[in-house]
Amino acid sequence: MNGLHDVLLSGGVQADRVIDLWRLLLWVCSGVFGLVLVGLAWALWRAPSVRNGSRPLHPDGPARARLLHWRIALATLVSTLLLVGLTAASIATGRALAGLSLDGALHVEVTAHQWWWELRYEDDPPGALFSTANELHVPVGRPVLLRLRSDDVIHSLWVPSLGGKRDLVPGHEVTFTFRADRPGVYLGRCAEFCGLQHAAMSLQVVAHAPAEFDAWIARQREPARAPTTAQRERGRTVFSGASCAMCHSITGTDAGGRRAPDLTHVASRRTIAAGALPMGEESLAHWITDPQSVKPGTNMPPTVLTAEDLQALVAYLGSLQ
């Protein structure tokens, strides 16, 4: 998997703003930390060292005590002012983040499942709606409005290079907005512990130039490519006849399962199994025959096929660009 996955390497305006806040906090906090250590070192250097059990002191006359107390009060006041300033900076950043213009936003509904991401692009007329999984394509420079829902437990969507995270809580629907300002691939992960394969629930965000994005959308709206070879034809039959269609769907075929990723254009994706394996025929074969060895605990069952059927199925799926 390649792609930016770093809070400090930004691909969009939201992440930029957070980096600015981070820099401010880093400088202030490092400065304060340094001052405390310097203060401590100075205190230890200045005070004489004595043997254990030596006579205790009562060194503070009233004047000295007052002086110490004023100094401490001053240091406290300075600390308070710094903290108030940092709070103001945080709130200002928050307001800036909330102020992202939503004109012309792309609407996508994200539903989190154990352990994959379902994405429905909503800007289409109902007949042209499509679903995809685990890979969110967005146009550069255009705001994206995600509607976040969870199908089972609490998950959290996080793409570090594009912005902060949002929890997907069952029973709540939340929106999250961001804008990718530079083309590229951005890696995201689920960031709320959600069970056995929380570690392998990745989301990739692919930001395209607008023309490329339009082309991608147009391809995704089309139903699945009809098989062009006998092997792929056999593969489609295997798909419909085996257990695949119980959970998966391929638009344009009889397979209409809604419980697992939509596979209509699976071969156009960069990875399968929410980022666990790179897209490819070998990966597909591995995933289909022994998913537990890739993601122990996954709900995808192992499927037993003859070698020929497996090859045919994989060839068919590999053709679904």
């Binding site: 806040l21 709070t87 709130i91 995270k165 960031a191």
Partner: peptide, 18 residues
């Protein structure tokens, strides 16, 4: 100091649960 960073909402939304 890292607590101050985590107390700040926009920064926390990046580093929360990491």
């Amino acid at each position: 100091m890292s607590g101050l960073m985590l107390g700040s909402v926009p920064l926390d939304l990046q580093v929360h649960d990491t």
